[in-house]
């Protein structure tokens, strides 16, 4: 039943903006992405501390975040600068390009206790409701499976400290009351997912 509902939701999302999906051009995005690789890594797989991998990310999530950087709503000076003046079509093509790539996770050394704790926290905090049970994300909700552990922790801290919000305030509230050790366990568990 759960799967059916999600299938219907995914189908609805695919139907929602047929024009926009067809219009995004990953090949064009690849040409635009040259300067992004310096930080986000070859093929969108980041080798740098605190820089997220973009390969295999949800295209709508990427599009929305690039818009928020451009508009100065999400504050991070290097990205605010990088996105300055970038037009909507370029953003959609960049998103299509990174979404088309394959994520090659660089998982941390497995800590069984942390994994168990992270898994339990994910269940009680319903991470899989929006991020989906395999944490691959949907629409405006990002893939978090296989993301860099340090970036996951950094991002959750930013949400928890109200330094960042998404296109709504869901994540700010979702992490309310979790300790640093909780967030570390979640980041560790999620970084190990495929």
């Amino acid at each position: 039943m759960r799967t059916t509902l999600m299938g219907a939701a995914a189908l609805a999302a695919a139907l929602l903006f047929p024009g926009a999906v067809a219009a995004a051009d990953a090949a064009r995005g690849q040409a635009l992405a040259e300067s992004c690789a310096a930080c986000h890594g070859p093929g969108g797989n980041s080798q740098l501390d605190l820089v997220p991998s973009l390969a295999g990310q949800q295209p709508l999530f990427l599009t929305l975040q690039m818009i928020l950087f451009r508009e100065g709503i999400r504050a991070f000076p290097p990205m605010n600068e990088a996105m300055k003046g970038v037009v909507d079509r370029d953003i959609e093509d960049l998103a299509a390009y990174y979404a088309s790539l394959t994520l090659e996770p660089q998982p941390p050394a497995r800590d069984a206790a942390k994994v168990e704790r992270g898994k339990a926290l994910s269940a009680t905090h319903h991470c899989g409701s929006c991020h989906l049970p395999d944490y691959s994300g949907q629409n405006q909700v990002p893939r978090i499976a296989g993301q860099r552990e340090d970036f996951l922790l950094h991002t959750m801290l930013e949400y928890q400290q109200q330094k960042r919000s998404g296109t709504d305030t869901a994540m700010n509230a979702a992490l309310y009351g979790l300790s640093e050790a909780d967030l570390e366990a979640l980041a560790h568990y999620l970084a190990l997912q495929r």
Partner: peptide
Amino acid sequence: QQVPAWAVGREGSGMSPTLAPHAPKLTV
């Protein structure tokens, strides 16, 4: 608040747990 503000009350509601706000579109 232990869950997102929009999701407070979801537990035990009997409603589909995958209901969530729809994505915006911010491009032209």
